[in-house]
């Protein structure tokens, strides 16, 4: 796929290190993501890919190095950090929809409470987003009444309602039954086509192949490869990547 990067990158990680106790979970990680770029992060479990994704909106603080978003270093805490988070959408493996709110309330809560937007306008936008992800008819139900695939699409709509500059996906399809993976990936693919900047941690190699601008392969807390998907899947350079691909692509 062509390089869509224009101007300065939106997300820049430079020499990032993080430890969980003695475990060096991010080892000198540097990565930059351009505006409109879709970067898919893959790698074996425990390679640090989810942690990497979570450092970008500082759900995980880092021990050293720097992360900038839209030209500014991530604020450490307080209002600045909250503002940054409101500009970065996040989708979790376990959906994390607010269990005591309806689907529509889940989508409108952020804009109304964080952005202080007018409820009526937000409601309209929320319904349009639910329609876009194909669950407009579920607006008044509670999360527990929806299938996993529907919940994850609602979670994507909730993140989009904040009109974010970038979207982070932390294994968005890993908790889904196989027949529901497609409906979530379809939504993500259409987002990617519309030019949303995305960092996607996933095991879905099909998505990486057709929707990513770049594939980042991580192992043991390091970025081992960073290449265009065609190049990565056809000619992985490292032994770790070859080994990983041989294990997941043989089935």
């Amino acid at each position: 796929m062509d390089d869509v990067t224009t101007g300065e990158p939106l997300i820049v990680l430079d020499g990032v290190n993080k430890w969980f106790g003695p475990l060096h979970v991010l080892d000198d990680v540097s990565l930059s993501v351009g505006r409109g770029e879709v970067v898919v992060v893959i790698g074996p479990s425990g390679s640090g890919k989810s942690t990497l994704c979570r450092t970008i909106n500082r759900l995980e603080p880092i021990d050293s190095g720097s992360i900038t978003f839209d030209g500014r270093p991530l604020p450490a805490e307080g209002k600045g950090l909250a503002k940054l988070r409101s500009e970065v959408g996040m989708v979790f493996q376990s959906f994390n929809l607010f269990a005591h709110k309806t689907i529509l309330e889940n989508v409108t809560l952020g804009p109304v409470k964080v952005r202080k937007e007018k409820p009526a306008a937000v409601r309209e936008r929320g319904l349009a987003l639910l329609d876009r992800v194909g669950i407009a008819n579920q607006a008044d139900k509670y999360p527990a009444q929806l299938s996993g695939g529907q919940q994850q699409r609602a979670a994507i709509a909730r993140a989009l309602a904040m009109q974010p500059k970038a979207m982070l996906f932390d294994e968005p399809t890993s908790a889904l039954d196989p027949e529901m993976v497609g409906e979530v990936l379809d939504v993500m693919t259409s987002l990617a086509r519309e030019g949303m900047t995305m960092v996607v941690v996933t095991h879905e190699m099909g998505f990486a192949r057709h929707a990513a601008n770049r594939v980042v392969f991580m192992a043991d807390g390091r970025i081992v490869e960073d290449a265009a998907p065609t190049e990565f899947f056809a000619n992985p350079r490292s032994e770790r990547a070859k080994d990983f691909l041989s294990k997941i692509l043989t089935h």
Partner: peptide, 13 residues
Amino acid sequence: TGQAEAARALGMT
């Protein structure tokens, strides 16, 4: 914990 995490990720105080 995911509930609080999702709320923080939206930018809530």
